[in-house]
Simulated scan of single mutants.
Amino acid sequence: MKMLINVAETVVADALRGMAAAHPELTVDVDNRVIVRRDAPVAGKVGLVSGGGSGHEPLHGGFVGRGMLDAACPGEIFTSPVPDQIARAAAAVDSGAGVLFIVKNYTGDVLNFDMAAELAEDEGVQVAKVLVNDDVAVTDSLFTAGRRGTGATLFVEKIAGAAAEEGAPLERVESIARQVNASSRSFGVALAACTTPAKGSPTFDLPSGELELGIGIHGEPGRERRRMMTSGEIADFAVDAVVDDLHPRSAVIALVNGMGATPLLELYGFNAEVQRALAVRGVTVARTLVGNYVTSLDMAGASLTVCQVDEELLRLWDAPVSTPALRWGI
């Protein structure tokens, strides 16, 4: 497989050096693997910290900035950041108002963020934690016990980030983050496997003419494998999966997310089918976001995430945000 890299061992460090050069509004510590908004810590503001294995860009580093995360901790490809790294990020963004850890439900992430919280609290930092577990495809996987954390991570980071930016206290920011997670459901589909730099070949076998329904963002197996389906058929399957589990009673925000290798032409076409399928099922869409936000390296495919919102959550979603990958209202 051809890749635009030097050597596999330095892929993450090289990307961080490039990010630092492109975004002077961020402080990027390449050696310690921490990305922090340059004005952190912001006086009186709750700090938001997230992170996870690299390979899901722009998650999480691309969401550091005003109105979203205060810091992100990138691990190696598909590998959790280490506790010292996370604790260092917490110390960098703590203004005395406390820090919220936003953690995707993968075993390594959960364990390491828990240990980091203990380290941070030993240094006098008040820490709260919110677990994101929105994926309805499977209950358990190769990487986790319970549901996986996927696209809803973006919703949690954006909406809780807006509340923190407005000066909400830690308990309120945590409560909003939990509400967003509880109100969100996701389902992903793979058309082709991803390729890690270290392996240099697809991470799993997906024969030509087949697709995997319910795939995870690390290439974990899904619900079932089928012959290739049309965009409309995939949309019906994904919408059924999330709506049957969530039973939305109010409007939703819809995220049509590319897995890394699917062009926008296809994603917008898929979004048209998702909107149709949601309308048929009586679901009103208040806002829509289409693009590559929670990826899996070069995987071909897409995921759908919906978040049921009330007026307050929608207001916080619309609030100004300024990050490398998400920007409006500023």
Rank of each mutant, 00 (worst) to 15 (best):
T195C: 01
P197F: 06
S95P: 13
G329S: 11
D29E: 09
P221S: 14
G219H: 06
A117T: 03
R66Y: 09
T288R: 10
N6A: 07
W317E: 05
A190R: 00
M259A: 08
A40H: 12
G282V: 14
T295G: 03
P197W: 10
M3Q: 15
R185E: 04
E212C: 13
G62F: 04
A8Y: 02
V127F: 05
E57M: 08
V283G: 00
E266T: 15
E312D: 14
N292C: 12
R281M: 10
G61D: 13
A40G: 02
G167C: 14
G61E: 03
M115I: 14
A22V: 06
G146R: 08
P83D: 09
G52Y: 03
L304T: 09
A279M: 11
L213H: 04
K158P: 02
R37P: 02
I176N: 01
A182N: 13
R148I: 12
E118H: 13
I77A: 09
T79K: 07
R276I: 06
G301V: 07
R147S: 05
R178K: 10
G55C: 01
A277N: 07
A43C: 12
D39Q: 14
L16R: 01
D298M: 01
V321E: 03
A72T: 03
E220I: 11
E9I: 14
L48E: 01
V28L: 09
G216N: 10
G65K: 04
G18H: 04
F101S: 00
R66A: 03
C194W: 06
L255S: 07
L326F: 08
G269P: 00
R315Q: 12
S183L: 10
S175L: 09
C73Y: 00
L289Q: 02
D240P: 02
E9F: 03
T262A: 13
Y106P: 05
L69W: 01
D29M: 06
S50G: 12
F101E: 05
N105A: 12
Y268P: 06
E171Q: 14
V11Y: 00
R172F: 08
F143S: 15
A91V: 14
P58Q: 07
I5L: 11
R227G: 15
G52D: 05
S95Y: 08
V82Q: 12
S322C: 15
V132G: 08
D109T: 11
E118L: 15
T305W: 03
Q179A: 15
V309Q: 08
Q179Y: 06
R148M: 05
V294K: 05
M68F: 01
S54V: 04
R223H: 10
Q275V: 09
G282S: 10
E57A: 03
A193S: 13
D70M: 02
M3E: 11
S80R: 07
A97L: 02
T295E: 03
P324C: 07
L211I: 15
A198E: 14
L267A: 08
P320R: 07
F270K: 02
V46R: 03
D122C: 14
V127Q: 09
V30N: 01
A162M: 02
R33P: 00
V127L: 09
E224Y: 15
D39G: 01
T203M: 13
R276S: 13
D236Q: 13
V28A: 07
I102H: 04
R88N: 11
A92G: 02
G124S: 02
A91G: 15
M1I: 15
A87Y: 06
R148A: 12
D244I: 08
G260R: 00
Y293G: 04
P81R: 01
C194Y: 01
A198G: 10
V130R: 00
A13S: 07
